[in-house]
Amino acid sequence: MQFKNKIVLVTGGSSGLGLAIAREMAEQGAHLIITGRQHDQLDEAVASLGSPTVAIAADVSCVSDLARLFSEVESLHGRIDVLVANAGMGEIASLGAITEASFERIFNTNVKGVTFTVQGALPLMAKGSSIVIIGSTASINPGSGLSVYGATKAALRALVRSWILDIKGSGVRINLLSPGPVNTESLKNMLSENAEQVIQSLSEKSTIGRIGEPQEIGRAVAFLASDAASYINGVELFADGGASQV
């Protein structure tokens, strides 16, 4: 699990879970490229990582942004050794209150964005490279109000199953890391005024008795991305304290 001199691209790497993943990679010697939509967050992330890090503003739901991103990466490094397709979003809306705009936002980021991120990165990836896509336990247990979000994460599982066949023999691995609830600001913001109560309920569902911490997800991603997992391909690894297993 060492990434010395590896070129690692983390989408949505300027805050929250993405930043924790980027920090884990940086601590293991990676040359980082992070993306995000907000310039100020990207600047703060670069300052905090303390590693050779390049920030490129990009919206993964915009194919032209992704084309520009990969053109810049190719000019800078000529390759990608590890891609972490982390950029994603969620909104709570129960059946009857789902809007077309919300549906499109979530699918465009979580499914379209991941699809064209992976497709755009592949030409820069050689044998031994690795892709880790960030899913969610919502793919199998979305809970009330998270049907659309959960559907996007279930779609990622189906995509990975097909993609490993599409690129069979390339030597590039694709795996899915699906966290349970993680202690991030984005989770608290999504839960709004009910955050404390819901987090307590989620903690009780975990066989470990708490929700996850961002750095724990970062380590799990690093494992799947590393040569330590060289014979692991096409899996969905749940990192949720055992909640999805009982």
Results as ranks from 00 to 15, higher is better:
H31Q: 10
F116Y: 15
I199V: 15
L19S: 04
V60A: 04
L156I: 06
K205A: 12
I7L: 00
V60F: 03
L146P: 05
V198H: 12
E44T: 13
T152R: 09
F223Q: 00
R161D: 08
R157T: 11
K4F: 09
M1S: 14
M1G: 14
R79A: 02
K127R: 04
A87Q: 02
V148T: 15
I92R: 14
S206P: 08
G218M: 06
V198R: 15
E236H: 12
P123A: 03
V182C: 07
F107Y: 15
P142L: 11
E185R: 12
G171Y: 10
Y149E: 03
K6N: 02
L49M: 03
V63Q: 11
L66Q: 14
I106H: 09
S192P: 03
Q119I: 01
H31T: 13
S130H: 03
L146A: 13
I56Y: 01
L66K: 07
H39W: 09
T35C: 06
Q215W: 05
E100S: 09
D59M: 08
R219S: 09
S226G: 10
K188V: 01
G145Q: 14
K205I: 02
A55D: 01
W163A: 13
G16S: 10
A151E: 11
S203L: 02
R23H: 00
A97E: 14
M190Q: 07
S226T: 04
P214G: 05
I232W: 07
G150H: 09
T137W: 11
T11S: 13
T207S: 13
M190P: 04
L17D: 08
R23Y: 00
S186V: 07
Y149H: 12
G120K: 01
D65K: 05
I164R: 12
M25Q: 02
L66D: 08
L76T: 08
V160I: 14
A239N: 08
G16H: 05
A85H: 10
F3R: 01
L165W: 02
E213R: 05
L66A: 08
D81T: 07
S144W: 09
T207E: 06
A45N: 09
Q200C: 08
V160A: 12
E204R: 14
V235I: 15
G113V: 09
L177T: 10
S144V: 12
T184R: 01
I92Q: 10
G29I: 09
V172D: 01
A57M: 13
I21G: 00
F238K: 14
I34N: 04
G78V: 00
L237A: 07
S206Q: 13
N183K: 04
L95Q: 02
E193P: 06
G90K: 06
G16I: 04
A26V: 05
E74S: 06
F107S: 07
S102Q: 15
K4Q: 10
I167A: 02
E72R: 04
T152H: 07
M190E: 06
